[in-house]
Design a protein around this nucleic acid. Structure first.
Lengths: 374, 374
DNA sequence: TCCCAAGTTGGAATCGCTTCCAACAGGGCG
DNA sequence: CGCCCTGTTGGAAGCGATTCCAACTTGGGA
């Protein structure tokens, strides 16, 4: 009935007495308006879908939280689609385009194929991306190359000349992984900065492996056991940087006395760990993506199409001037004493342990080195 | 039209030629079935809402991921409601009961008032909780008291007699916080285990503060500066345990040589940090909650109403036998060397810094000590 | 050749709201 | 006192599927 609808919603043009009556009846009958019917009738579900990769990663969840806060405030319900594999990605992408269930879609960090983007546009489904580029789509991103340079420049300015890199392999879209691009671009920034500083690129100093602290620890371990180990390591993410810290500890490289470490993202833990890192506005990126989608849904124009958020180097105590030879000492610390020996005994951190597990995902040997990667 | 519906869905009893025709027309018209209309007609949105507190906390997001995986597989859309304050909690709880928008609701870790639960039951909205108790509601929980005992027993068995506790304050429901119960119960377990071991409870050794690694570091710092500091600290969560590790480092208490540390939850990072901890099946708890809700939605009975998941002590290298006086040495490590001094200079970790920020949330001084808390 | 059962197909009713519209009640003003 | 305008109310027409049902094919068996 018209009047009921008026009472439940705006409540304009309803006599106070009638209003009270209706409310009373609603209460007595335990009537609950159906969101569905309302949405169907209204023509819009006021629902947004957000596609995130690897939900549990700190950077992802912070972005998600940022987006949720905005969408919530704007009165949207948010359907969260977590994606760990290409199959899941495609499944959700298809579901989202094939059926009309959300007013709009936010895609976080996931590179999406052109034809999929086209499917959204064809269906005129509003869409924005966060931390991912897509032609013709409003996007909120950072400049990963610049970030890589920032970190590298910081280490160079401290006097480091032999700087290692630990990051993700550059997988193609077709492979097992989601094919994130950030690590690749950060590596690019690292290379460029080195080049501009007149330092020869040493492929040996670049180690790539699946995204995890444990793997990163392993890769860093390899670097530190080199005859001429780096005096600094730039990790493509804070998670990986933690792995590097752990490896430094285990290999007896006090941080920052014998090894400087720089991460990327500035997740919450970095402050506690005193990890120098490149700060990117994670939460804000999610919020901005959401805001831009809302604008799109309100029929407003979103511009610039490519919104680039600022980065900045945050220096903490994990990076410092390299020690002059033999000055060593100090303490480096991530793990309780004895972790090294004990873990080794259990074979848990053996240099190649993770490869056993992940070999299938890394078909080409040279994914492990910078050759042909950048 | 009936036939179209048959083609789009099951596709039974449709001649192959017609089917192809319909499909062709669908393609040509760019027709997208409306989830809303279907849901309205069908009578069920096939949508579930999940209420989580402090989404970005590691334990929360892992639970969420576990639930999402199951719901996804079961074909449900999942609306995620993140809750950081009591107002948000009430807002979402009200929205969920007042309007019919989800088939069912999962509540994670949030204590919910009786009348709110009643509202769900009255509206016969299927509901389950994870990591929270609620009378008459299917719940997936752990025994936090037992967990507290497990951790404490572990430390006692190593020979510790002076064991500190760092956890959350026991806020009432009406206060600013969400009033989580886990820390309180873990503290209870700690006290009981001590009592049974014939050790007098020392309120000085219990320090409570808002949930964060930084605060925990501060509280632990107070403990370590005591004339007779504890030889071990049990933290109510891994996040807080990380704070404790950090404090140990800063105060010059090598772990585990001069201080053993035990956490709770077994989040991913603990392995990297070699933190001994009480393992609880986080992801599994979310998955189980989701599974049970699905069962409820299928009209099945869920039992037992209270599903209790197992805990187990995971010993890593942050806990060991207490050193005999003067045997010290070894290294303790969480922070890069020099962090202590440098951070102190910036006042960042000054013992009382956080209180400035959070005082308003902690009206009663004795929330900081165990008196009247358990 | 005819009839009937099984297989197909289109149409109508329904889900529960929003929204537009017509009808109606008052009150102010001519 | 009557008219018009404003404020209020109930009714009807969708929204876009699902689902039941009646009608229509079709093919096999009598």
């Amino acid at each position: 009935m018209g009047t009921v609808s008026r009472v439940v919603n705006g409540g304009v043009n309803v006599r106070e007495s009638t209003r009270r009556q209706v409310l009373e009846v609603i209460e007595r009958l335990g009537y609950r308006p159906s969101h569905l019917a309302a949405a169907l009738s209204r023509g819009t579900p006021r629902t947004v879908a957000i596609l995130v990769p690897h939900l549990t990663r700190p950077s992802t969840v912070v972005r998600l939280a940022g987006a949720l806060a905005v969408l919530d405030e704007q009165g949207y319900d948010t359907i969260v689609c977590n994606v760990d594999t290409p199959e899941q990605r495609d499944h959700h992408l298809t579901a989202l385009t094939v059926r009309h269930r959300a007013d709009g879609v936010i895609i976080v960090s996931i590179p999406v194929a052109k034809h999929r983007i086209a499917a959204f546009l064809r269906g005129s489904i509003p869409i924005v991306t966060v931390d991912a580029v897509a032609a013709g789509v409003p996007q909120t991103i950072i400049d990963d190359v610049a970030g890589g340079r920032l970190a590298t420049a910081h280490l160079l300015s401290l006097g480091h000349r032999r700087i290692g890199f630990v990051g993700d392999p550059a997988t193609r879209e077709t492979e097992q992984d989601l094919g994130f691009t950030s690590s690749r671009f950060r590596l690019q920034g690292y290379r460029r900065e080195l080049t501009e500083a007149g330092i020869d690129f040493d492929p040996e100093l670049v180690r790539l492996g699946p995204h995890s602290a444990a793997v990163a620890a392993d890769l860093a371990g390899c670097l530190l056991r080199l005859p001429d180990p780096p005096t600094a390591i730039f990790a493509a993410s804070d998670t990986q940087a933690m792995g590097v810290l752990s490896a430094a500890e285990r290999c007896g490289f006090p941080v920052p006395d014998r090894l400087s470490v720089v991460g990327f993202d500035d997740i919450e833990l970095t402050a506690l760990l005193n990890l120098s890192t490149v700060h990117q506005p994670l939460e804000h990126s999610g919020a901005e993506g959401a805001r831009r989608l809302c604008a799109l849904l309100d029929g407003a124009k979103v511009r610039p199409l490519r919104q680039q958020l600022p980065l900045r180097m945050v220096q903490r105590t994990s990076s410092a001037r390299p020690a002059r030879a033999g000055s060593g000492g100090g303490r480096s610390h991530l793990l309780p004493a004895g972790a090294d020996r004990r873990e080794r005994e259990r074979g848990k951190f053996s240099p190649h342990a993770w490869r056993r597990v992940t070999d299938v995902r890394l078909p080409r040997r040279n994914d492990y080195c910078a050759e042909g990667v950048v």
